[in-house]
Amino acid sequence: MIVAKRKPFDEIMQLVKGHKKVLVVGCGTCVAVCLAGGEKEVAVLATELDMGRKLANNPVELGSITLERQCDREYLAQLDGMVKDYDALISMACGVGIQFLAERFPDKPVFPAVDTCGLAVNQDVGWYEERCRSCGRCVLGLTGGICPVTMCAKGLYNGPCGGTNKGSCEINADQPCAWFNIYERLKAQGRLDCLLKVQPPQEWKDTTPRTLIQPGYTKPEKAKT
């Protein structure tokens, strides 16, 4: 899932300080699961803002709502009748949701209340670890199911580098060396030959905004609003 971290309160205060009527919009999917921007977090932020602004002698009128998803028009449509009553929106969705919200209401300033941190696994409640950089050219088949782009601090395709350190990465003893782990897994599977061939330079696919249209589907002349 997509994980995010709530921004520091002072930063959010600073972003919205000039606005008197603000709607806080949460997202009920990924950011809700990772405890950053779901219904509970919306309620907490709204309370904090209310108190913070009162203390600053700059009270604010707040509304709050959590949509099923902010990356989907179907759910954003719920806001169509509400937004006119506010002079700014705070989104607690990931960067995708924030942009889709801003795109739907282009005359309203939209402020992010979270920093989107990546595509991660759920290790435990409140503990998430990045696993994918969505590079668009998956090599996991050759690397024992461990992503060198994400898990190697240098994103090396022909690693490890000289800094591999007793199974750890040179940046930090707590960070495993991805290539050490790749080696161990492929060895256990009897597939070390995967590592012998020089992998050619990556043809990067993430250098321009990407559009995905699945087979059998077409892009409409003009997107529905």
Partner: peptide, 14 residues
């Protein structure tokens, strides 16, 4: 931001 557009192995080949 570290670049690492290509790695050392790929630089040798280049």
């Amino acid at each position: 931001k570290g670049v690492f557009d290509i790695d050392s192995m790929q630089l040798i080949s280049t």
